[in-house]
Design a protein around this nucleic acid. Sequence first.
DNA 1: CTAAAACTGCGTCCGTCGGATACAGAGTAC
DNA 2: GTACTCTGTATCCGACGGACGCAGTTTTAG
Lengths: 240, 240
Amino acid sequence: METGGVDKRRLYELLWGTPSGPRRGPRPTLTLDAIARAGIAIADAEGLEGLTMQRVAESLDVTKMALYRYVPGKAELVALMLEAAIGEPPPAPAGADWRGQLDDWTRQMFDRFRRHPWAHAATVAPRVPGPNELAWLERVVAALTGTGLTAGEQLDVAVLLVGHARNLAQHSATGTAPEHGREAAFTMLVRGREAQFPALDAALRTIPAQPPGDQALDFGLARILDGIQALIATRAAAPA
Amino acid sequence: METGGVDKRRLYELLWGTPSGPRRGPRPTLTLDAIARAGIAIADAEGLEGLTMQRVAESLDVTKMALYRYVPGKAELVALMLEAAIGEPPPAPAGADWRGQLDDWTRQMFDRFRRHPWAHAATVAPRVPGPNELAWLERVVAALTGTGLTAGEQLDVAVLLVGHARNLAQHSATGTAPEHGREAAFTMLVRGREAQFPALDAALRTIPAQPPGDQALDFGLARILDGIQALIATRAAAPA
DNA sequence: CTAAAACTGCGTCCGTCGGATACAGAGTAC
DNA sequence: GTACTCTGTATCCGACGGACGCAGTTTTAG
């Protein structure tokens, strides 16, 4: 049923193509953007499994097959949804150094992913990046320009940060349970198997009540930025 | 079609349950492990979309419905596949400090994810952790015991490292193109839009021929471990 | 002003998927 | 030996993604 394959050429046109001029035939009743937004609304509420061409069409008061006049298939629809859901990057915080900019950047990215939990699954497969996605990347590179990091390292930083934001957004949105933290779930599993997981058991015993929040995001982000800062310091001390 | 929902209670039994004693009726012709391994072989070759109950059954010379005597549904099968594919954690390198242990741990995890590209998609949804998954987590906590990090921080480190390994394994296995690196793909997109992505354009011009390998994994891992090391240093200097 | 051309939206159809259900046979415990 | 229970299978279903062709509508060419 699901082809799974993405029509890369057509998807590139959809993502980067300019709105065409006057065409022949009846006016299209739909817009790519409206379709993408309808899909986003459904996926936000019920996930990618709940996203059906039928449901998208219904929410737009159109037949299912009408959608295929705009989008080659479901895979390309999800790609368009992703580009629209990520949106344009927010303006860089004024007067911030590279660290402040990257910190803000990561938290903004985290927010987008958390608002659209399906986005994680949508970014697992290799994909054609859209204008918005490239604009986000541009922000990272711009923030790191002049720090002494090579271009390859700047891209590596972007990969590192977006990966962290995406990873933690998943943990935050689809937490093991609404009422318990992840520690409670682990404790239940370790109980009675202390011999098998001694270190884990000892650690879980010392854990206090977990304040809800994005503590894991903060922790990882601080470590990553500390590590980058250390590298920049060595580059500044001994420029190549 | 796909229920999407996982039977948590039944899955817990499958993952953690002990092999039952003598039962009545005919001997089962299959094993949970054999089914999981058959599924892994198919998913390794064709991804999760190519994984079908039908195909798994065929490769085991059984009817499709026979599988449902062992596994409640496809979601639980994938969970069992994941647990089997991750496998037991390798022995910790002898005589290594926490950094050496975590470095090795992350690379080993990276290897598992790269060998099974579908594992990333399988770990997007919240899940019931199996014995192997918990054993891997135990290794991280054990390595960090005595460093002054709190239990919560130790778990945060595990989340950070496994996220990085999983993220980079995806980039490595499903690279944008076999012949070009990611930089080549970006360059094609930025070309002609230099005004829109000035920093990215400038960076891409300075990029040398990219030696294939796991450079991005190394870079991010080094930054993360540097950041953790800095935190441990402050804890050692001012113990709470 | 007319006619051809092109494009939209839709109805119908198909193959495949995950899964429910019911049944016949095989093996075990009493 | 007999009753019970578990296995494997055959059949069936609804839902999904997508192909195809038709009819209507709007723009362009003459």
